[in-house]
Design a protein around this nucleic acid. Sequence first.
DNA 1: ATATTGTATTTTGTATGCAAAATATTATGA
DNA 2: TCATAATATTTTGCATACAAAATACAATAT
Lengths: 226, 226
Amino acid sequence: MKNLGNDHVNLDQKAYNQLKTMILDQNLKSGSKIYQEKLAVDLGISRTPLVNALKKLEQERLITAIPRKGFYIREFSKEEMVNIFELREVLEGLAARRASLRITGSQIKKLNDLLTGLKTSEAGGSVEKYAKADRRFHHFLIKLGGDDLLFDILETYSVITFSYLVKFRGGLVRPPKETLPEHTAIIEAIINKDPERSEQAARDHFKRSREKLIKDFEEESQNGSL
Amino acid sequence: MKNLGNDHVNLDQKAYNQLKTMILDQNLKSGSKIYQEKLAVDLGISRTPLVNALKKLEQERLITAIPRKGFYIREFSKEEMVNIFELREVLEGLAARRASLRITGSQIKKLNDLLTGLKTSEAGGSVEKYAKADRRFHHFLIKLGGDDLLFDILETYSVITFSYLVKFRGGLVRPPKETLPEHTAIIEAIINKDPERSEQAARDHFKRSREKLIKDFEEESQNGSL
DNA sequence: ATATTGTATTTTGTATGCAAAATATTATGA
DNA sequence: TCATAATATTTTGCATACAAAATACAATAT
């Protein structure tokens, strides 16, 4: 008989989920210190599961721990953000390659639906809607191409990326008009079950975004618009 | 003034280190359950830091946690091992690319020394020595090309790979005679500061090992030599 | 003997207690 | 007034206590 009882959600997990959204939504400000006792009371739990969640988030780099001093909300520097894009570049390249090798009929349909979503929101002119469609597409892609390990790594850093983009750039690095053809290229290559082209298309997409990001950062620091 | 006092090593860390070596050295057998109270006593600590270490190892996939049941030493399946090789393939490709772009004179010297190490141990005919030189080379490569994030991910899965190879294959996937030219190619490309070629060489190296691994697994399951 | 129910034991998840370290506050002297 | 020392408060790191869940064991019925 199947064991349905394995979905026990413990306080660690709840604390982790809450903290993570608080951080990504900026309800906990970057750089600020965590006062364990207070936060634990606020969350209605004890320090034990709170600290467990903090340690987990530390491993994801959303939090810094300084021994004997405490936990601090971390903020990603521009360099780190660029590095995360570089990481996603090769990993989503791999995911796209793998996706092209194992995609099924119903998944092709889903992929086409996602493409339609991107196209209509681009045509509709809503950056926010496009950003969401973008997110759904990448999420599906990594689900499609990733084993557990690859998916988890990519999901962690995708979420961080999206949160960062929403915070500082209205959700996107580049305008839909520019990225839509790239998304189309990735999807077409995967549907055609062409691994080389799928990987290359995904990498190109990220590479262009990364280069735009670097360019913008350089301009920012030049005209001091920081 | 610089704060030198931040090197406080807490029990979490010590427990983590000990457990990790115990797992990788098979002192804790795959599949076996962790009896927290007993293990804590054995390590001379309480359950609190032990559980912290276990949770950290769970995030690295060396341990499985089943809610309300406990922690179990995990073992990597063949498929997972192949997936890890695939991950390292793209990530060390990236590390090699990055290394080629930022390598300095003294690092070139060190890289040449590592190559000499590989050559002499290949000539000497000791697989074990070659495996160690191989390990040192890859470690230096990811140190060279990785930012903190990339380094950490690669280091985690490199260590797992090496432990697996030592356990099941005497330390290597393929004989030194076969891999030495590949190592040489990677090093030469990096020294020549050629990013494309560096990445490609590193990827080829891993791809060949991965394919050998798959082939061996298939043969194993065919003639039942498992 | 085998299955089923009930009882005892172990183990986990979480809160709490407490010493040591870090931080804030006050007092003292230049 | 400002720096330094002394003291009080807060916070961390870790151990421990304890209820609830899981497991092992025993008793009873089939």
